[in-house]
């Protein structure tokens, strides 16, 4: 009796599946519809719009949809603007390297030295604690630290290490780099620590048993296995730093203009076409950077 009921149920389900045809077979894709609509409306369309607007004609007081290359030519022929592009890339590279140099050892400590999961979590949360205050406060807090009469200069003078205050600390590219590294290093630490913590202790014991020294084990086992974390961390940091403008405007005293700052000013003065040019350039740079980073490891296989 129970058997025949089950048979009938299976039969009905089968018939229903055949009956509904297309919808039943591809019903799962319906789950994607809201996301796809969202992405089209708020990502694909605006991106297309941005590219389109970048070719509009911009005059001092108005903008018209007549297509022209003028904004592009202005960008690449101006030292100010092209220089901002180079500066953005330079600061991005500094920040990327420094977040890695500072973040990797920290992650190594959290992920490998500490083998206790609870302590690992506590340490990672500790890294995130600065995020409990607002971004602006975190950035602005660097001013009393780095200024000519700031904490660092006062301390160094007190200990007699320097006679005159160091002036390059604030309102320079250095202060922008320092500020950004402090804010973004945690995005490097997190993914790397996650990958490192996932490495099975038995691999390291096996390598040790096979005669490898600690340094060799790091080079051949631990680092390669943490590489996906490095790549993910680098992508996080890159995407955020390349589009940065707030840290630069708060800590550079308006002397260091990044592409992000230029967009803000141009939009502020309603120069939409020119802002769009920079937007397109930034988008292309980020795409190239991400593609390049993803070439390093096969994330799909590693995660």
């Amino acid at each position: 009796m129970a058997d025949s009921t089950a048979d009938m149920a299976a039969g009905t389900a089968h018939a229903a599946r055949d009956g509904r045809g297309f919808l039943a077979r591809h019903g799962n894709y319906l789950l994607l519809v809201p996301g796809v609509i969202w992405m089209i409306l708020f990502l694909v369309v605006p991106l297309g719009m941005m590219v389109y607007v970048s070719f509009w004609t911009q005059t001092t007081f108005s903008i018209s949809s007549d297509l022209t290359l003028q904004s592009w030519i202005t960008f690449f022929s101006s030292d100010t603007y092209f220089g901002a592009l180079l500066r953005t890339l330079k600061i991005w590279l500094y920040v990327l390297v420094l977040t890695f140099v500072i973040g990797y050892p920290t992650a190594l400590f959290i992920g490998q030295v500490v083998r206790n999961k609870t302590v690992q979590t506590v340490l990672l949360v500790t890294c995130v604690i600065p995020f409990w205050t607002s971004f602006l406060i975190r950035v602005l807090a660097w001013r009393p630290m780095l200024g000519v009469e700031g904490a660092i200069n006062i301390l160094l003078q007190k200990f007699g290490l320097i006679a005159e205050p160091i002036e390059v600390l604030l309102f320079t590219e250095l202060s922008v780099v320092i500020g950004m590294v402090q804010i973004y290093v945690v995005f490097m630490v997190g993914p790397i620590a996650f990958m490192l913590a996932r490495i099975d202790e038995s691999l390291i014991e096996a390598a040790r048993d096979l005669g490898a020294s600690t340094w060799t084990i790091f080079r051949k086992i631990i680092f390669p296995l943490s590489l996906p974390g490095v790549v993910v961390g680098a992508i996080f940091v890159s995407v955020m730093v390349l589009g940065e403008f707030a840290t630069a405007s708060a800590l550079s005293g308006r002397k260091v203009n990044l592409l992000g700052n230029i967009i803000v000013t141009q939009v502020g003065s309603l120069k939409w076409a020119f802002a769009a040019v920079i937007g397109v350039i930034l988008t292309v740079i980020m795409a190239v950077v991400i593609t390049g980073l993803l070439r390093i490891v096969n994330l799909r296989r590693a995660l």
């Binding site: 038995s202 691999l203 390598a207 086992i221 590693a302």
Partner: peptide
Amino acid sequence: LGFVQQSYGLFPH
């Protein structure tokens, strides 16, 4: 001395 672990400990990469 060789140690063959129960979990094999093979290097996945």
